[in-house]
């Protein structure tokens, strides 16, 4: 029994050490980070609230993270910034309100750290979400039509929110209207903007 205890103690230390080094210390190091003050008096980053926070949950539950990153690598490392995905490397500060951070590890699709700044058009996002090949021919992103409601085109008026399809994608029988979840998701995507300066170079 004695042996098993010392064996046990030996293996416990190994995990404990890395836990302290890789989990507790980083946590302790990042907690004091404060948002930056911009010249116009606002602060960044902005905590997600209301529909942006709801959209963040939609982003979570649709598993967007499995194909899209939200992190910009340094200038001399890859071509993230040359591709126009960002203007600076993302930093711990950018994620102080992220619960959980959606950094991602796969780029089956492009990075989204600054998608709100890169593509500010609401209707573009809706069309793209409805069926990505409408805006991005050749895309292998799955269509998310289930986020939109089909309203039969009777004699009724066209709803204001109905998607405006290019001719070849038009559905002659239905108007397609974004659900609340679709609107929230687009709100969240439009909120993604890490182009503000953090006062740390880059």
């Amino acid at each position: 029994m004695n042996r098993s205890i010392s064996l046990l103690a030996g293996v416990l230390f190994t995990v404990a050490a890395s836990f302290v080094g890789l989990v507790l210390i980083p946590d302790w190091q990042f907690v004091p980070l404060e948002p930056v003050q911009l010249d116009d008096g606002t602060t960044r980053p902005v905590p997600p609230e209301g529909s942006v926070a709801e959209g963040r949950l939609v982003y979570n539950e649709l598993g967007c993270i499995y194909c899209h990153t939200q992190q910009i690598r340094p200038d001399n490392f890859g071509t993230d910034q040359q591709r126009g995905w960002g203007t600076r490397q993302t930093e711990p500060l950018d994620h102080i309100y992220d619960e959980p951070p959606l950094l991602g590890t796969m780029r089956s699709g492009p990075d989204l750290a600054n998608i709100g700044a890169r593509q500010p058009s609401r209707s573009w996002h809706h069309l793209h979400m409805f069926n990505p090949v409408i805006t991005s021919p050749g895309s292998n992103m799955p269509p998310h039509r289930f986020l939109y409601e089909a309203i039969p085109r009777g004699d009724g008026e066209r709803p204001d929110e109905a998607l405006n399809f290019p001719e070849e994608f038009d559905d002659p029988h239905h108007w397609w209207v974004p659900t609340d979840r679709a609107e929230a998701l687009v709100d969240y995507l439009l909120s993604l903007d890490h182009t503000y300066p953090t006062g740390r170079g880059q």
Binding site: V23, D27, F30, V31, H95, I96, Y97, E99, P101, L103
Partner: peptide
Amino acid sequence: ATGVAQAT
């Protein structure tokens, strides 16, 4: 853990 520490 919060923020980036959660990622680590």
